[in-house]
Design a protein around this nucleic acid. Sequence first.
DNA 1: GTCATTATGACAACATACAGTCATAATGAT
DNA 2: ATCATTATGACTGTATGTTGTCATAATGAC
Lengths: 158, 158
Amino acid sequence: MIITSDAFAHPASRLALEVFRLNGALIAAGDALVAPLGLTSARWQVMGAVAEACGELSVAGIARNMGLVRQSVQRIADELAAEGILRFAPNPHHRRAKLVQFTERGEALFAEACRRWLTLADALAAALGTDDAARTAEVLRAAREHLNQAQTRKEEAA
Amino acid sequence: MIITSDAFAHPASRLALEVFRLNGALIAAGDALVAPLGLTSARWQVMGAVAEACGELSVAGIARNMGLVRQSVQRIADELAAEGILRFAPNPHHRRAKLVQFTERGEALFAEACRRWLTLADALAAALGTDDAARTAEVLRAAREHLNQAQTRKEEAA
DNA sequence: GTCATTATGACAACATACAGTCATAATGAT
DNA sequence: ATCATTATGACTGTATGTTGTCATAATGAC
């Protein structure tokens, strides 16, 4: 394996591997956090998008905001609606694309999930230092934009 | 949604969201990179673990190194073996736990995947700055350790 | 107004991951 | 040496996400 061992030591490789590991750790921590509420990380994430949009977005719109495809969000939203956490409200601008909104129960559930997360988030920010957390987030954003641009350039070339 | 809007602005929330986004971007970029070789990010990742272990680990050992469960690695390894990319070699220390190794074709494929990745990795490191990339990786590692410790403490309390 | 294009939701197939269970091999305490 | 414990692989089920396809609603060009 000598010929490829360089690849593991590359700064970008180390960064990518840490991103993968932290992504897994965050999802695991999130699942543990909201499991007692009958939620999962994925459901919580969809609920976060609904909250951010103040109930004024359709499933497709939420998916765009989240960087996922419509179908993934649709399945989660259908489940949450079946459990009385979300509901589909008529959209004055579009007959088919219903607006995804919280029920009262859903809103309370999301508030409780946020409360739990903030406890962990405070501890995490304190451990890392708020400045370091902000700087790190900025580097990650820059890395993502570089990847997206590289992807776009490649697609345009094709 | 007023009561929970704080959660989105929290430094730890911003960091977590960027981790999720970059994780997705990295997987997408990796898939695009190795798709012409008939590989996927998941297959490439397993092959990376095989390379790192120099063919001296079983499926369960690789899973531990990767932070995944045995079953996920087993499925990928079985597929790669069926396609002549990996093979299961007898383990002198364990009759059932075969050693996962590259075939010649697999080794060449992995070398080519690494070559492609290094091109992108160099561009990414140049765009971010090598120092920033290293510092960022360190913060992510610290964040993951904090989460893991919090998780462990919680389990011990239970 | 008509018609091509786009957006949306519904449905199915597949890839990847986790959890649970089982049988058997390996290990360790006695 | 025996037996309980642990490790491993095989199998099943489930959660999450992607892609592809289809029908229909909405939009825009003319």
